[in-house]
Design a protein around this nucleic acid. Structure first.
Lengths: 229, 229
DNA sequence: AACAAAACCTGACAAATATCATGTTTTTCC
DNA sequence: GGAAAAACATGATATTTGTCAGGTTTTGTT
């Protein structure tokens, strides 16, 4: 396992790439490697975060509990992404929980290091800003989808998202398998509705399944459905 | 009309407050004052923005056109807020249109000045970052509301939002009057559904109206409805 | 392997919401 | 001030989605 941030490939994909050697060394000297098993919480909504989590491996769901007791998954965070930045920047408790979808390895970086670097290195701050700007755009898109697309379209979109971001195995099954409930919580619908729609897609041969694993069969038709044709 | 940014009260509310005297002078020397009438577009989705818009007066709706031809209003931008920051930072065409809800006055600040300051003054960058972090949190909340609350709850919430952010006049009517269609586009529903719900609220005496003006009558009951009681 | 727990699935029905059609009121503009 | 346009309003109906209730299959554990 590579233990020096300076040589960590993961860093290339996030805002830490804008740090200089000295700053990276400081991160490296203070980071704590942590492991979470599938289903474990990295942190929970309302918690004060003392640092950020740089994902080395695995996927976490970032979700928020709604008044009616359902979780809404706002984002999936993958290798290379940094979680908890927002809360550290505004010095507020985090508004989201992070739960491991599969086994997750992260490097925890104390907030003092992040905040200190932001005051000294404008390039780093700007890089963080760019990432946050990107997240904000994605959030805007989600809002529009939520209100303007049907549940069916959103379910279809969720599978396309999984294919495009995590790929498929030799048999064509999605590399990242979510439970039906998780998919429902991404899409913002009832679990039963989600299952029903998946069944319908299977009947129409847009998808095929094997246990909880899902494969996209007719990608174009699925995309047309998303686009409203 | 105050023409020097150094003395502009509006600046106190946005990220420009982190600029030093010299930087502000530069903004002041390069800014362009612009006026837009109700209904006019400050900029449109897909446009490249050559700068940011600092709102001196009035309210604009930031919206995105969906595939089915409906506008989704993602945010309302008011006095003191800066529009277009996101697009300038990531150097992409803007993902949102800005339309004046009432007469709007803005100062247009060329992007070179904003970007230049971000490279030199980490405090400014950090301040922009804080504002964007705040926007991102709000966006997350909107996502959860969209998927977990009923249209009725969201309409009620929209009115509470208008009251809390723009206040009411002597008679109790909301200072910011939106058309039923705009409210529907904030809430993400059909205009008819929105009208119907307002009618229902009137019957229950939660609201009263006079033309398109709306007043909240029973605030507590309205809030209970939002919270799901 | 056997059991329990969790996840998945389906039907029946109820509730929420959209759509279409049509009429009324308000606003705008000449 | 009056005509035209836009916004508002409501009924009837169709569609979508959620809820509840009851199954089956899969997964995990001893």
């Amino acid at each position: 396992m590579e233990t020096r941030c300076e040589n960590c490939i993961v860093r290339k994909f996030n805002s830490l790439r804008a740090m200089n050697k000295e700053e990276l060394k400081q991160v490296s000297d203070n980071k704590v490697y942590k492991k979470f098993k599938k289903g474990e919480a990295l942190f929970e909504e309302g918690e004060k975060l003392n640092g950020v989590y740089c994902v080395r491996n695995g996927v976490s769901k970032l979700s928020k509990l709604s008044a009616n007791g359902k979780d809404q998954i706002v984002k999936l965070a993958t290798t290379g992404e940094v979680m908890g930045q927002r809360a550290v920047i505004v010095e507020e408790p985090t508004n989201l929980s992070a739960i491991a979808v599969n086994d997750v390895e992260v490097c925890f970086v104390p907030k003092e290091i992040i905040v200190g670097t932001m005051h000294k290195n404008p390039d780093f701050t700007l890089e963080v800003l760019r990432h946050m700007a990107h997240d904000l755009k994605e959030a805007d898109d989600v809002i529009v989808n939520m209100s303007q697309k049907t549940v069916k379209q959103r379910v279809a979109e969720a599978f396309m998202y999984l294919k495009n971001n995590y790929g498929v195995d030799e048999e064509g099954f999605l590399n990242l398998t979510l439970s039906r409930e998780d998919i429902a919580n991404v899409v913002g619908t009832a679990t039963e509705s989600c299952i029903r729609i998946i069944s319908e897609f299977k009947k129409k041969e847009l998808l095929k399944t094997s246990g909880k694993r899902v494969a996209i069969v007719k990608e174009k038709e699925l995309q047309d459905l998303i686009d409203g044709f």
